[in-house]
């Protein structure tokens, strides 16, 4: 793949995401969307190129969380622009720029995959999990805006609903991957336990909507949920930085 090991694509995408954010802050929606689209294409090429980091195609580096998350956020921001061109873009693009900045400092190589990692279920798991995380971060940001009075009171709810639905997809694909790889649908390891903690937390947040007196608190829980996801997922990513990496 011609973009394998070409980090310029990633750096350019990060720069473009930053520019798109700046344009959105100054209410230049269309130019912001155009710049975002170019950044998204470049990052897509970079992600595909990561598959060949080891010289043969391996799926796992393509769906590695720190690199996939900004891509998911960019996809969501782009999709939102297409559906609702007049909707504010600044917040979402700020998230895209912030999370993509982390890629600058993160190990670009790939963790040598074990045979169990090269399962289609693993790829589906990481894809659905990253997309769910992206929606949870978007929901947390919208909840912050709601609490600040700069967005309607329950603006974050739709994001939460879709984040939770996709996180349930991740639970299913993860359970299948775990079973075909290790013979369990639930593993008593920190990864599975933290994943279940996130799922139950957001289930509680969604149910809060149906308790009229507690409903106003759900925005706080949406923000707390975003922070919980950040703490758990980026804690794992930082831990994985110590692993042996090849290529990149």
């Amino acid at each position: 793949m011609f973009t394998t090991g070409v980090h310029a694509c990633l750096y350019a995408a990060i720069g473009l995401y930053g520019i798109a954010w700046g344009l959105a802050v100054f209410h230049q929606r269309r130019p912001a969307a155009a710049v975002l689209a170019v950044g998204f294409i470049l990052q897509s090429l970079y992600l595909i190129g990561r598959g060949w980091l080891g010289g043969v195609f391996v799926v796992h580096p393509v769906v590695e969380g720190p690199f996939l998350l900004p891509w998911c956020l960019a996809l969501i921001a782009g999709g939102r622009f297409l559906i609702a061109p007049k909707a504010p873009m600044g917040g979402l693009l700020g998230l895209v720029a912030a999370f993509s900045l982390f890629c600058l400092f993160y190990g670009k190589g790939m963790i040598p995959p074990s045979p169990e990692r090269e399962s289609v279920w693993a790829a589906l798991f990481f894809l659905s999990e990253s997309m769910a995380h992206a929606l949870f971060y978007a929901a947390a940001w919208m909840a912050v805006l709601s609490l600040a009075g700069k967005a309607p009171p329950h603006a974050y709810y739709t994001w939460l609903v879709w984040g939770f639905s996709l996180y349930t997809v991740a639970q299913m694909t993860g359970a299948l991957w775990c079973f075909v790889g290790w013979g369990n649908t639930f593993s008593w390891g920190s990864r599975h336990l933290s994943s279940a903690a996130i799922w139950t937390f957001f289930a509680a947040t969604l149910h809060l909507q149906f308790v009229p007196k507690w409903k106003p608190k759900s925005a706080f829980l949406a923000v707390a949920g975003g922070l919980l996801v950040l703490y758990i997922s980026y804690g794992n990513y930082l831990h994985e930085m110590r692993h042996l990496r090849v290529g990149g």
């Binding site: 309607p152 329950h154 974050y156 739709t158």
Partner: peptide, 10 residues
């Protein structure tokens, strides 16, 4: 809450 649109409120 699905009846509410985050762009416009209700």
């Amino acid at each position: 809450p699905a009846f509410k649109d985050d762009r416009y409120g209700l």
